[in-house]
Amino acid sequence: MKPSRLFPMPIHSILLFAVWLLLNNTLAPGHILLGGFLAIAIPRLVAGLSTEQPSVKKPGLALRYCLLVLWDILTANFEVAVKVAGPMKKIRPGMVAVPLDIKSELGITLFASTISLTPGTVSAEISEDKRWLYVHALDVENEHALIQEVKQRYEAPLKEILGC
């Protein structure tokens, strides 16, 4: 999607329209009209504030990535629930440093958020040169295996989606 004069931020316009209809929980013509007006007017007002954002290169892969993350949240939640309810002596917490291949800020943000959302790992801090992400894990069996898994499962598709 390319920005045009009428829609300087097309994704934000769609998001505003959808959220307006969701908030009012309706598909009445009046609300569609009002939502459309807001979706056009607000991005035009705030377009001057926007910064350069990388665009999504492969929407199909992005959708698959979302489903993968949702599935991982679901399955890993059960694992963490078992660990939390089980004996505390058995968990092996630890901090690992994950080297980052993604360079764009949006990519790093999405990667860190994904890591935090999937249970068992929380991203804690990022190095100043944006090359290392410090991740705290609830149960580390093998640091290298954990780093490899996270990088292959989440970072590689993200890199492909954002094209950087």
Partner: peptide, 12 residues
């Protein structure tokens, strides 16, 4: 640090 894992995600 381990306590962060429980609530922020199980509650989601």
């Amino acid at each position: 640090y381990t306590r962060l894992h429980g609530p922020t995600k199980a509650t989601t």
